[in-house]
Amino acid sequence: MNRQITTFILGDTHIGIDILLVKEVYRHMSITPIPDSPAQLKGLMNLRGRVVTVIDLNVCLNRPATQNIDTSRLLVLKTDKEIEKYKTSGLMKNIFLGDDIVGLLIDQMDDVITIQDSKIFPAPPNLDEVEETLIEGVIKQEEQLIIILDVNAVLEKIMAVCASMEE
């Protein structure tokens, strides 16, 4: 089956996410840090009157935390309500984004590509510093290796980290 993947650059990696999950890409940012919270949560942001939880993808992928966000962009994901229609029509299954708006910090947006599910390979074992559970697989696009992110797994992991924060 064909899927449209929107790709972006994080550090030196190209990462892709199913375009149906993406709401918008936002530029201007003023993030309020959350005291005493896990490093994966960069903070909260105001997006046209809604509170967006900003996720530091670098931390999620076991990399050093994003330091300078001046040039970063925010990839805003949809909510469960917005992907409901995809689920009922069968385009998507078993993806739970939650009711809160979540944004992923990225360095730069890249192209939207169309891929075939069959062309997604499992993560090669030498892909270091990347949590294998968080990715669906990899795909090669004109000599460029793109990591397909499993958004569900990312959000679940963050939820788990937050839940275990209680003393």
């Binding site: 309020t32 959350i34 939880t53 939820m159």
Partner: peptide, 22 residues
């Protein structure tokens, strides 16, 4: 957001007049 529900110190968030989140 649900990720912060366990944070006992905070009961909610709000948007200040000048646009940032508190």
């Amino acid at each position: 957001p649900r990720y912060l529900k366990k944070q006992k110190s905070f009961s909610g968030a709000c948007i200040m007049g000048e646009g940032s989140v508190s």
